[in-house]
Computed example of a mutant assay.
Amino acid sequence: MELDFEKWHGNKNDFLLTWFPHDAVAFESLRRQAPSLCNRDGSGVGADGILVLHTKTSRDITPYQLSIINSDGSLAETCGNGIRCAALSVLVKHREATPKVELPHGIDLALKSARTSAQFIGILEERASGALPLVAVDMGKAIVNEQNPDFKAAQEYLKTVAADLNMPELTKDWSLVTLGNRHLVFSLDKVSRDLIRKIGPRLQTSPLWDGINVHIIKAKDVSDKDLKRAKDELGQNM
């Protein structure tokens, strides 16, 4: 099986993208090859994941489903940047179609267990120049902390991980966020790739989720001058 790939970037998320008129067996083969293809050490192309636009035939320019394969081969529920990249690839297909076809103002896509829509912003204005428009994606409402039914179980799991890694700070300031896919957000004093490599794989192994996005943030000191400027710009009390 030979596949043509495109490379797309969205807000520093980079993806391989392929239009895929193949069957489930071929798709599972692609999933198994994802770690090698996404590897950044020189042996692979390097990517955060693979976007698969499923079509019934190789001539179709509108996919019936989008699959998002993580770099480890697992399937993501959703990904805002990935959806935006996929939508633009569909738009490019329509622009290049022969004979000419009407350009879409947006696209609806079936995901792993839901549907999503992406809307092109400024497509009419950009039609003549050929530039790609902005894309807006409705990701739905975020479900935060106790709104998640497994929040208490996640608390207990984090206590175990923190003890195993000798990192009690993991249990002090964190959030569990569901926005289609799952996110663990930690506010820590230090942020580094080494830290992500240390805690990320450990948090992936929980039976509570089939993979999860791990984020580390560091609070920035805000001066009185910055605070005053923010108040002036927002025009409201803070």
Rank of each mutant, 00 (worst) to 15 (best):
G180I: 12
D48R: 07
L66E: 05
M1Y: 06
L16K: 02
E233K: 06
L170Y: 05
Q33L: 15
A131W: 12
V135A: 05
F27A: 02
S113T: 13
N13C: 14
D189G: 15
Q119I: 12
L88N: 01
L195C: 09
R32W: 15
I83R: 04
L75G: 00
I61Q: 01
A118K: 02
K228C: 08
A24W: 15
A163N: 09
K198S: 13
P99V: 00
L203K: 03
N81D: 08
E102A: 10
I50G: 01
N148S: 03
K100E: 12
D14C: 12
A47W: 11
I121P: 14
T178D: 10
I83K: 04
A114K: 14
L170H: 00
A230H: 08
K228R: 11
K231S: 08
W209A: 09
L37E: 04
L179P: 08
L132Q: 02
V92F: 05
K152Y: 03
A110I: 12
N166A: 06
T55Q: 06
R31Q: 10
G80I: 11
N166L: 11
A110F: 09
V177C: 07
L184E: 01
L184R: 02
E77V: 06
S71K: 11
V222A: 12
R202K: 11
E126Q: 14
P21H: 01
G180E: 08
Y64N: 08
C38T: 03
D23R: 02
A128S: 05
L103F: 12
N237I: 14
L91P: 03
L132D: 01
R193L: 15
F20P: 01
